[in-house]
Design a binder for these strands. Sequence first.
DNA 1: CACGATACATGATGGAAATCATATAAGAGG
DNA 2: CCTCTTATATGATTTCCATCATGTATCGTG
Lengths: 195, 195
Amino acid sequence: MPRVSKKQAEANHGAVIAAAARLFKARGINGVSLPALMAEAGLTHGAFYGHFKSKDDLAVAACEHAFAEKGALYDDICTRHQGDKRAALSEFVDRYTAKTHRDQPALGCPVAALADDASREEFKGPVRKAFAAGLENMVQGVLGMLGGRGRGKLRDDALADVALLVGALVLARATKGQPISEEVLHAARKAILTD
Amino acid sequence: MPRVSKKQAEANHGAVIAAAARLFKARGINGVSLPALMAEAGLTHGAFYGHFKSKDDLAVAACEHAFAEKGALYDDICTRHQGDKRAALSEFVDRYTAKTHRDQPALGCPVAALADDASREEFKGPVRKAFAAGLENMVQGVLGMLGGRGRGKLRDDALADVALLVGALVLARATKGQPISEEVLHAARKAILTD
DNA sequence: CACGATACATGATGGAAATCATATAAGAGG
DNA sequence: CCTCTTATATGATTTCCATCATGTATCGTG
């Protein structure tokens, strides 16, 4: 069958990256095999090395894709609540601590889903750099929603809010099915949205 | 060579669990092979199934061991700062957000190190239950150090503080080597220790 | 002190993964 | 329309893993 149009080949390339972003977030980088990954993208495993140099190479691309996908979201929320930073923050936090977010890591925040992989020695190079850039982007996004309260050291507040949200989501996922899972999400929401 | 004393066999059993706790925290459950694990415990791979039913079985034991090991720590800190809850919390938070803690996951908090594994579908059974118990224990520990401030809803405060600490540690590990890593740790410490 | 139970080592087995080699069929350029 | 290029599929290769089978030498016991 092989050989598809240039357009199709490009689409396939993107499909592999998108599938990788989803699967890596859901099962971890080491939890996904290349054959499974390519199947999810609608191809066979042999096509892989025509698109990427190695699995690590794809991991970096998938990371960047996942972060880019969410990058626009912060601006979007801010824009929709034009001026009302408080409302923007409220919507963001509510969405982040929603049960649907906890239950769908494949579609959710890459900061929470990829942190563990990024911390492993085997991925410390480009993956960690991409992760740090994505985290910084999220911090900037939250920074743009703060300001409606205490003034100085806004960046520290944003960093703490992000850490709190990520920590709560990670813990909620790890305890899913038990009451403490929802408790953590609720406590985080309250801590951030209460002056 | 085989057949060792009953005492030795029991010690070996414990050594395997301890090695598993260390390695699982450092590299993730799927990142450690049984041969490597047994070698770390000073045995060969063949001895494994004399001690455990399966790798999952060991994962549960290792989880429980890791949590039990840290369980005493909360009480210890509280006892040493007898009465002064504020000082106890301060020491705990300082230790948790220390760079040495970030750099040694094998010796550190199992809540932060095992959350990702616990959230995976493949481990949702007994591992997740053990994790939830360990998390609850940490929350109780922090609860015992609060009280020196706002009254109502102390449990929510403890949950949020734990989520913040865990989130900060996870993010700091994922960005190790870049400036934001230390920033997150510092922001978390400040957020908790500032009324 | 001899005998049976067993913890451990060695090695086998079956499966799966990452990566590479090759063939093919269809796009693209002339 | 013919040729050359190339994205993809098929399948091989090498490695490693979880688990199991077997032998053995020592411990525990009578």
